[in-house]
Design a protein around this nucleic acid. Structure first.
Lengths: 115, 115
DNA sequence: TCAATAGTTAGCATAATGACTTACTATATT
DNA sequence: AATATAGTAAGTCATTATGCTAACTATTGA
């Protein structure tokens, strides 16, 4: 993966990792606490956690034998911004698109819609 | 990939596909138009497009030999909503987190921060 | 009708992802 | 000191993703 958004979206594309985010949004937790609800070997889960850390979405500190994880909001905000931006552009074109949709439905008797 | 968000985030995790979205946000385009700026074989590009269509982010209609693609805003809005929701939860905990951060930095002389 | 254009299908190679087990280290607890 | 707990590391394996080339179909234009 190349840039910031690549790795962020990649990280969010997995339900386990999204669940971790959802959990951490309401406060920090240890690795075992985070792991508990997931029916999956610990090492496997750790790699999901590593993906989140590598992307900068999650930070952690280890105290004694316990590692405590928490969310870092930056990437989240950035991604939300990108989506908002796209949507803004798209919405500013709504009228033109509607015109075009008319055009299309008028012109195309016998168009296909499938892949 | 299992649910709506999985496939959406998965689709957005690729720079080529995000570029297509960025292009389509400002108006519909044919397959060749979309392909042009990407240094990649057409069949390869078509598969990216298929990912976007399968996810419901892009729709298309074929008229004659030309397939015209356009954006479907639904998934975009949904994902933005999910991010906003997480952020909201997180932000409502800011005070508590700061308290906790104090706690941690007070308690931990000799913690590690690495993976 | 013949050639060019637009897109599609099929098949293959390689890399990345996600899961597992086994074995290990470091820190509490008793 | 011995045991339990919390987390890591290493290595394997199956599946999915991403890229390619070659060959093919359907439309349009000369």
């Amino acid at each position: 993966m190349t840039n910031q958004l690549d790795s962020f979206f990649g990280a969010m594309a997995d339900p386990t990792r999204r669940a971790v985010i959802e959990r951490l949004a309401s406060g920090p937790a240890s690795v075992s606490e985070l792991h508990k609800p997931h029916d999956m070997a610990l090492p496997t889960f750790l790699r999901h956690l590593k993906v989140l850390e590598d992307t900068g979405i999650v930070r952690s500190i280890k105290k004694g034998r316990v590692r405590t994880c928490h969310i870092e909001a930056g990437p989240l905000i950035e991604a939300q911004g990108w989506l908002a931006w796209q949507r803004e552009i798209w919405e500013s074109r709504l009228d033109r698109l509607e015109t075009l949709a008319h055009q299309i439905s008028k012109d195309s008797e016998g168009e296909t819609n499938d892949a």
